[in-house]
Design a protein around this nucleic acid. Structure first.
Lengths: 353, 353
DNA sequence: CTCAAAATGATAGACGTATATCAGAAAATG
DNA sequence: CATTTTCTGATATACGTCTATCATTTTGAG
């Protein structure tokens, strides 16, 4: 029924429990011959360590750290909220979480924060990363301490993390394009795009995916070059107002970045028919914009799913188990009708339910 | 660090471990006064039972049963596949699953199957249900045996199940309507609808949601009365061909039910521009239809998410824990660009073709 | 062959809970 | 008050693993 125990393995291998234990927890001082015998017995019997018993015995606690960009960005606040909410429920399983705030998009700050992690001994770390060589040193140090590292939302240098949890931004851009194209119903049009900065990899990828699909499948549409906004609502507001007044042929708007409060404000001030509008990340203000009809679509990366996966993955890595089945994350499309009911900006309120 | 133990609670309550244990596992033969003292101590110390230790001690196995409609329906095959896949990975946690096939949509068959569950002693049961009074008796029996019951995909009589996991079909219909409306870009049009049967609650609800949104927000569109198909691909094929030939004003198609193989075939045979097409449930053939461009949208209820929630929920119910945070399930929109990579194929599917 | 080093076996206590047994105390009954 | 009934406490064993200790055997080097 419930599988073989380590004693069974020891018996089958013809060694003592102590030796089998030495092999499994590689404590050293074991002859190669014995190691082989035990490994063979493990395979033959299909032994899997009873993690519950093991954790009970060694009073295991999973001390996890999440490095999240600080600042007013609503998406990261939502991410933070999901982390704390889930962490509270996982405290039953001896999981403790520390959220480390990192100055947004600063390589230096991230570098230092990762470096400091080595001091406290965390058992696993999830990082909203950057693709930058400067991060290699502290990451390698962390790894050397045997700490599993995963990239979250935005990837780290590939060689130095065990996994990445986040969406494929090219796919996100393609999805946005597909629906924008559909909404034109074979009419002609021009799509004004906005981005925070083009050296932000996710922004560039979304834009690329968007362009690819429009070019391939919607020849009557043209994609206007992105206006760069630094994700600043004020900049976005001004830019959107100007663009809309200057170019009456704009039939759609797509912002690959953040700062949507400004964009929504600009759209809400349009008197006649507004352009078809697509933005990213479902947060309180984008949700409201869907409901009030100022925006048509929100492409979301489901931070709740990402967070829950991050926890599961880190635990699996720490226990050195194999991972549960996890199909690739795909961007989710929200319209005003399939909005989740929960509040997105207030973690405390969400708890109450 | 890791919370108080039951011994701590006993001490705090001024009773013996044995008495504290009697209270927590309500073994009876304990004075009201003692019960109160223990309860108070539990609250005061914030004691939570260490489930891992408890399960270890009592060699707990979670024997779960899933009652799933049998037959060639691709969606339910996919559901089955997700159940077995996840079950395999949960075997580490002593979870065993039995999938009980039930003749599709037959109240009598479901009645009997539920009745038989009482014999084998399962620890928790998930049922793809029907809203029918006849089911109350066997469900009540099961409950009397202390077996948690949840409705999956399609709900059971509300009073007799602990929870329902599935999407709101009204929302699904509304979502379909919103996007169909968008795709008309303010043009006029007529939408031909299809349904398996209108006494199937999910079909009726989807249709209702669809109609509501079109009526409210897209006055230039009309919703044609549904053609009833019994979810039979052959019927659907014939009906779709006839409708499309007879009524050239059809600008869109929406099938709230199954049997899409037939519908897709009919659409693929159209020579000039095909109508905008929306169907439900991402399975291998609907995925292919998206890729080949015979269908524009697939509204999916994410059976993988449903299954994983079902497991988590059943375990929580069995352990009498409180549940992890679970925001309402919302229908997911797939276009050809945000398709999951994994194969949705399954053995049954091959036979149908 | 000798002696240290390396490897192995045997075993015990701990983790927190479940379950059972038995003796003894408190309460209810007449 | 005696007697049954109900309740309580004390204690032991088990679950599967980790960790540690100590004695013993095997191996390798000189």
């Amino acid at each position: 029924m419930s599988g073989p125990t380590l004693s069974d393995v020891a018996d089958a291998a013809g060694v003592s429990y102590a030796t089998a234990d030495r092999v499994l927890n590689n404590r050293g001082n074991v002859a190669q011959k014995s190691i082989a015998k035990v490994r063979e017995a493990v395979d033959r019997l299909g032994y899997v360590r009873n993690v519950a018993a093991a954790n009970l015995s060694r009073k295991r606690v999973y001390r996890l750290a999440f490095l999240i960009p600080s600042g007013p960005n609503a998406f990261f606040n939502r991410l933070r909220a999901h982390i704390t909410a889930l962490a509270q429920h996982l405290s039953v399983d001896n999981v403790t979480v520390e959220i480390v705030d990192v100055s947004a998009f600063s390589v230096e700050a991230l570098h230092d924060s990762i470096g400091q992690l080595t001091g406290y001994d965390f058992d696993g770390v999830a990082i909203v990363g950057l693709q930058n060589d400067q991060l290699e040193q502290p990451l390698a140090d962390l790894r050397a301490h045997g700490v599993p590292i995963i990239g979250l939302v935005s990837d780290l240098p590939v060689a130095l993390r065990s996994a990445y949890i986040g969406i494929d931004n090219m796919v996100a851009g393609r999805t946005a394009a597909r629906l924008t194209g559909m909404a034109h119903a074979n009419r002609t049009g021009a799509i004004q795009t906005f981005a925070g900065a083009l050296d932000a990899r996710d922004h560039a990828e979304r834009l690329q995916g968007f362009r690819d699909v429009i070019a391939a499948d919607f020849p009557k549409l043209s994609v206007l070059d992105p206006i760069l906004t630094k994700d600043d609502p004020a900049v976005l507001y001004d830019a959107a107002c100007t663009a809309l007044q200057t170019n009456p042929s704009i039939s759609a708007i797509y912002n690959v970045g953040a700062g949507n409060v400004g964009l929504i404000k600009a759209i809400s001030e349009i008197k006649d028919t507004r352009p078809f509008s697509v933005i990213h990340e479902l947060v309180e203000h984008s949700k409201q914009a869907l409901i009030t009809g100022h925006v048509d679509l929100v492409i979301d990366q489901r931070p709740d799913v990402e967070v829950s996966r991050a926890f599961a993955l880190l635990r699996a890595l720490i226990d050195q188990r194999d991972m549960p089945p996890m199909p690739a994350l795909m961007p989710t499309i929200f319209v005003q009708d399939n909005l989740p009911a929960d509040t997105l900006n207030d973690p405390m309120e969400a708890q109450v339910k």
